[in-house]
Design a protein around this nucleic acid. Structure first.
Lengths: 337, 337
DNA sequence: CTCCTGGACTTAAAGGTTTTCGGAAACGTA
DNA sequence: TACGTTTCCGAAAACCTTTAAGTCCAGGAG
């Protein structure tokens, strides 16, 4: 806590010039003699002058601020997007106003109004799942991009991970490792993520002419379910040699139970997870091969496209972002434990 | 994307009054006839008018915005604090400008300037650990409160979890369950959290006149270390009947290995974790008794005190916030599995 | 009738910055 | 000397809202 804030007026009078000249000097404009500029800069430093962004924004109509409206309280998806966005903005000193609607539509509207009244230049909406969500962009005076959870309206700009492609990539990896008895354990079917990943699995298996082992097992996204599904699967399909799991939590549970039941991973059964949630994927034994959705890149890309949209160059549609397969010990080739 | 934003001027002329009257009508002030107010409100609704917070802030000197400056990219501590802060602010529609310095002092200064230039009303600084950190508040024109990681300067306002008290509480719980052979596995000693939690353990044991079993084992905060430490501990001190772990990650690793080595939890060995990181604490077998640092409450309290400080009523010093012991199956009394 | 009161509304200033335009000085050229 | 050009700087408007102060008018009291 200290003195009152200095204004450009104070700087100008300390430097003995008008505020116009001070402004020009501070903003590196022409039309000001080097010696004068020097004096102004010195005065500004002396008073530790910070230009008032409100006044500047009022005049220019640009606040250099974007709103990030998220719905996943836990930050599982919002955080990487925030980081990516900060990266994309960073250089040019954009700031991020963060609001968490906690899945409540009323609260979302409330936050939306608050952000709009603060005159954000744009908006990033982060979904809590990849299920399409109602558009928020109708008649909004600023551009909006959706990250992770796409908008229902195809005229909006959305960025989602390519779950289908990533799942296919994961399964192709298992096939390349020589596995042919591949099972699938995943999350609730009302998640589009679960359906997409299963779709990817099916495409990859079909292309290779390989049959899936057993039915897809759907349950919660939890470790507990992974363990439970493992019991069922190992009982019903004893000759399974690979499992593609819809999340690292499920995979961690599976690996634990498989281990307990005397199945070696990866020698007897190879396991692939999803999410690359490091507290799980690198701490299981063995560490998990898993899909990294590259959320930080997704966030950065969304931010960059928001910039483009702010400049009037929007690119509507749902953009699928490539994921990455992180290969760890849970899928080494058989015999190469 | 839609039309240009309406100003109060547009509202006023649509309603056929002056902007002053429009302002008064919109803000529920007296001196305006009900019929007139009605007209103004209708006009505002018609134009979906949102008052420009920049202009308002410029005039009042208050932006109703606070900055949240965090250093833990992963959001493990920052997020609950953000949520708590949003809760405290929410009713009164404060907004939060979030910046992540990622442990980089330069970037922190950069963000600090950006926040100041945006004229935030106050600042919450969230540490990445409970280690005291350099103060940022000297000669700042706005109040600052520190959450989780306290400031080195005792004149600042800091809120930290009461690690010592919580550890003592955890150990007292073990003692109450009849355990007398208590060991401690924790994180690196350069973390104040590790030292404080050990301190709490010592106080509780001393008060009960019980000796700690073996030396405190220090290592990374990881599950891997928990497993490794479990091997060592079970070898060196076979008769241990309880372990207090410095984190849920360590506890999860310990439980896993103890189980593998044929020790039953909690029958043979009771285990207490720390953090109540739910993806771990509720998913281990058995679920972990653990310390919940109540970070959301901490964040809310910090936010409330920031309000107080904004109003000129600061309460300097390091405030220790109470934690909570969440009792689950890993510490049931012996024989009551 | 005049004067006063109070209600309903308007005018104008303020807040800090950027920008446009015009002015002044210095200098060179005819 | 008169004039044009260049260089540097200042005055003032604009952005949008709130509020203090002022205006106007109807109606009541004297």
């Amino acid at each position: 806590m200290a003195t009152k804030r200095a204004t450009i007026n104070d700087v100008a009078s300390l430097a003995g010039v008008s505020i116009a000249t001070a402004s020009k000097a501070l903003n590196g404009r022409q039309d000001v003699r080097p010696a004068t500029r020097e004096r102004v800069l010195a005065a500004a430093a002396e008073l530790s002058f910070q230009p008032n962004a409100l006044a500047r924004g009022l005049l220019s109509g640009q606040t250099r601020t974007v709103g990030l409206l998220t719905s996943d309280s836990v930050g599982r998806f919002g955080i990487p997007v925030l980081l990516g966005a900060e990266d994309a903005f960073g250089a040019d000193e954009m700031a991020v106003l963060l609001c968490d609607a906690r899945g409540d539509a009323i609260r979302e509207q409330h936050h939306l109004r608050a952000l709009l009244s603060r005159r954000v230049d744009g908006l990033i909406v982060v979904g809590e799942s990849t299920n399409p969500r109602p558009s928020v962009s109708k008649d909004l005076p600023v551009p909006v991009v959706y990250a992770y959870g796409p908008s229902e309206d195809p005229d909006d700009v959305s960025f989602v991970p390519d779950d289908v492609g990533a799942a296919a990539m994961a399964v192709n990896h298992l096939l390349a490792m020589g596995r042919r008895k591949i099972a699938h354990i995943t999350g609730p079917t009302h998640y589009k993520a679960a359906r997409d990943r299963e779709e990817g699995l099916r495409l990859a298996l079909a292309e290779a002419g390989v049959e899936q082992v057993g039915q897809t097992l759907s349950g919660p996204w939890s470790q507990r379910w992974g363990r439970h599904a493992a019991e069922m699967l190992l009982m019903a399909e004893p000759d399974v040699d690979a499992v593609f799991c819809g999340s690292d939590q499920i995979a961690a549970g599976f690996v634990e139970t498989a281990r307990e039941r005397g199945r070696r991973v990866p020698d007897d059964i190879a396991v692939v997870g999803y999410d690359n949630w490091e507290v799980l994927s690198t701490e299981t034994r063995p560490a998990l091969t898993t899909v990294d959705m590259n959320l930080e890149l997704l966030g950065r890309t969304a931010a960059q496209h928001l910039f483009a949209a702010i400049d009037g160059k929007a690119t509507p549609g749902v953009h699928k972002m490539p994921c990455q397969l992180v290969i760890r010990d849970s899928t080494s080739p058989p015999g190469v434990s």
